[in-house]
Design a protein around this nucleic acid. Structure first.
Length: 154
DNA sequence: GCCAACGTTGGC
DNA sequence: GCCAACGTTGGC
């Protein structure tokens, strides 16, 4: 059982968008970074992930989601009208993938990035490292629990 | 294979 | 809006 963290810009797709989606479920599309993609491919059904809002006024972990389906090809890469189109990804040889994600809950209070950075137990989390742009990352069980411990103190 | 140039991410 | 850090591209 692994834990994860997924970044999204709320102006593009926020956790409110996820709640408003059919069955509160979506396919996590548009990942176009090899390291992030490789983590997507490791995700197993029923594993949990934090939902993080990036590139906004107060970047924060805002909720928890569950993996509902393991990786399959990202159709947006085949769609010439999509901003995520990639001519090098074909249905015969797909380059990019999605997983299915379902809303679990929002946090009682979002945990802002600056507080995550202050927690010495999270020093190794890629999210808090300078210059880190990774949009899909693993979270260790200890880190997962440490973050949940912060939920009601922020 | 190197690396300069470029485009993107994302905190601030 | 700025810009540092990063990843990718492509000439050589």
């Amino acid at each position: 059982m692994s834990y994860w963290l997924l970044k999204s810009e709320p102006s593009t797709f926020s956790i409110e968008h996820l709640i408003a989606s059919p069955n509160k479920t979506t396919s996590w599309d548009g990942v176009r970074n090899y390291q992030a993609r490789n983590y997507l491919k490791l995700m197993k059904k029923n594993e949990l992930a934090f939902f993080y809002h990036s590139n906004c006024a107060v970047p924060s972990i805002v909720g928890i989601v569950k993996i509902t389906s393991e990786f399959y090809p990202d159709a947006t890469a085949f769609d010439i009208m999509s901003p995520y189109y990639d001519s090098k990804s074909t249905s015969e040889n797909p380059r990019w993938f999605v997983v299915g994600v379902e809303f679990v809950r929002t946090l009682n209070d979002p945990i802002p990035l600056f507080l995550l950075k202050e927690n010495p137990l999270l020093k190794e989390l890629p999210l808090v490292k300078k210059g880190s742009r990774l949009s899909v990352m693993p979270v260790s069980e200890n880190e997962w629990n440490s973050i949940l411990d912060m939920e009601n103190y922020s």
